[in-house]
Structure formats: C-alpha cells, structure tokens
Design a protein around this nucleic acid. Structure first.
Lengths: 114, 114
DNA sequence: CTGCATCCTCGGGGATACTG
DNA sequence: CAGTATCCCCGAGGATGCAG
C-alpha cells in the first residue's frame, strides 16, 4: 500500500520527469498515432536535432514508455513504438492538453480585459 | 476554435510550464488543502529556501493559479490561496499522481525481474 | 539512415547576506 | 515575518563533426 498519506509530491514528480523533456510531448503524440522511424520523427518535429532526438528517445526507452526496434539492413532502419505501458500515458497527456487549452483561453481574457 | 487539429504540443507544454517548477506540486498540494501563510509553506516543505519559495509563488501568481493577500500588520503577514481557476488544476495533478504510482510499481517490477 | 563525441550556452535553482 | 539582491553551480538542450 504505497503512498498511503497521499503525499503526492513524489509520484507526481516521477510522472513529470518522464514527460517533461522539451520535445517529449510531441514525440509521444506522434507515437500514439503509430510506429515511426527515426527520420520520420525528426522531419515531423521541426527544429529538433538528431542528437537531441536520440537523447529524448533513449530516456523514454529507459523509462519503459517506448520500444526501439533495429532492422539489420543497409541502410539502417530503426522503428520506435509505444510499449503497452507507454500507451497508458495517453489519457494523462490528454488531461494536460485540455487544461492547457483552458489556461490559454484564460490568459487571453486577462489581456483583453486591460 | 483553437487547436482544431489537436496538435497538442502547445497546450500540453503550457500546462507543463505552469506546474513543473521543482517545488510547485508540493506547494499546490498544500494549497489544495486551504489557505497558507508564507512561513507555514516554508516549514511544510523541508529543503526549500525563502528565495526559491518566493520565486515559485510569484510564478504561480503570475499564471493566475494562486492569490497573494498582504495584511498591513506588524509583523507582516501574507497569505496564499488558490484562485478559482487554480482549483481546476487539482484533477490534473491527481492524474499525474495516479500514473506516477503505476510507473513506480512498474519500475520496481523491472528491478526484481533481474 | 541512424547515432555517438565534443563543446558550448543558458536559465532554474541553491547559498548567503541585507531590509521594511 | 516575508521578502529582495547577489553570486554561483549544474545539467538540459543546441551546434557541429565523425562513424557504422
């Protein structure tokens, strides 16, 4: 029975550590739609470099969110996909999305109320 | 009609920017329970300094999540509480909490499966 | 095509001292 | 009591070049 006093600092921070890389929400959004190759991911996320994309993917893999599949071909081919556990993140991100939309509306109202 | 194609990178990042200060989940947890004075907050969060607590509170205030009430007394007294809008964050954080607990369980299984 | 090594920048967060 | 003002450190993320 973990976290019985609901000191929710720790598990909340754990979740944030998993999803709060600069590009991770975008990466996850793409992978929620299906398996993607490395190059496709890079072209789908304007502004990200190979190095950083690699880093973010490695971290998500380390955290058990995504799977990396290497095909022994020439030229190399690597596919990334969500693990079953990774798919459980979708409703969480949807929650963040929905609240974020409300937040942005709220900010707009603040400005126009000047 | 904002974000119609559900490109949820942006609003998700907006939410993350609001809640992902190092101590913000803890601060919010305390304020979900009710109004708190500055000193009470500091003593409730071991390890945080006044400077950093001030910074995090200012940011949350700026984002419209919390309210700061100053009492013209000696010695000074300042109370912090959630705004109505800030209260809408609670279910979001609860979502992060729940997923974080599953995640921690998952990690434990990984280790013991060695 | 995919990825590692190296170097650098920048800002969040910490330590400390002073103040209304 | 509740801050502000400085200074500093460290790590995430960006740029570039090399490699299997």
């Amino acid at each position: 029975m973990p976290y019985e006093h609901s000191l929710y600092g720790c598990p909340v921070d754990a979740t944030l550590n998993v999803i709060s890389g600069k590009w991770k929400p975008q990466i996850l959004r793409l992978l929620f739609q299906g398996t993607r190759r490395f190059g496709v991911l890079q072209r789908s996320i304007p502004g990200i470099s190979r190095h950083v994309l690699t880093t973010q993917l490695r971290e998500l893999e380390q955290d058990g969110i995504i799977q990396r599949t290497v095909f022994a071909e020439v030229p190399p081919k690597v596919e990334y996909s969500l693990t079953e556990f990774g798919k459980t993140l979708e409703p969480v991100l949807t929650g963040l999305l929905t609240w974020g939309e409300h937040y942005i509306q709220q900010q707009d109202k603040q400005k126009s109320a000047t």
